[in-house]
């Protein structure tokens, strides 16, 4: 099997980065995964000066290894990036971060984080 539970995925699942609620967030959102009812909360602090930069970002919520690892990696990736860049993240970019094959059924898990980030930034 192409190992979906790779060491890096399990490591992010067990020791997620950027978990919790950052102080002074300027944007936040909560979204559900309709497949299982898991919910994800995202907090983002965007710089006041333009171009708008993601100064800090964090997440809360229970979920499967895939959704938690994807959001952990994604929040790492987006820190310091511009808001316009964050809005343009594609599903393929998320899959590339995960470095595993995502079945159609699990795509909702993998993309729950980016969906919530988009909704926070919109």
């Amino acid at each position: 099997m192409s190992d979906i539970y790779s060491e890096i995925i399990l490591d992010h699942y067990k020791h997620p980065h950027n978990r919790g609620h950052i102080k002074h967030d300027t944007h936040r959102a909560e979204e559900d995964n309709p497949l299982c009812g898991d919910s994800m909360k995202i907090y983002i602090k965007v710089s006041e000066k333009k171009p708008q930069i993601i100064e800090d970002i964090s997440f809360e919520g229970e979920g499967c290894a895939i959704s938690q690892a994807a959001t952990s990696m994604l929040t790492d990736f987006l820190k310091g990036k511009s808001v316009s860049q964050a809005k343009k993240i594609t599903p393929e970019q998320v899959y590339n971060l995960l470095k595993i094959e995502i079945s159609p059924a699990r795509s909702k898990c993998a993309l729950l984080g980016i969906k919530t980030i988009r909704s926070a930034l919109s």
Binding site: I4, Y5, L35, C36, D38, E62, C64, A65, I66, R106
Partner: peptide, 8 residues
């Protein structure tokens, strides 16, 4: 362990 991971 999340149920999705069990099923997977």
């Amino acid at each position: 362990i999340h149920p999705h991971d069990i099923a997977e």
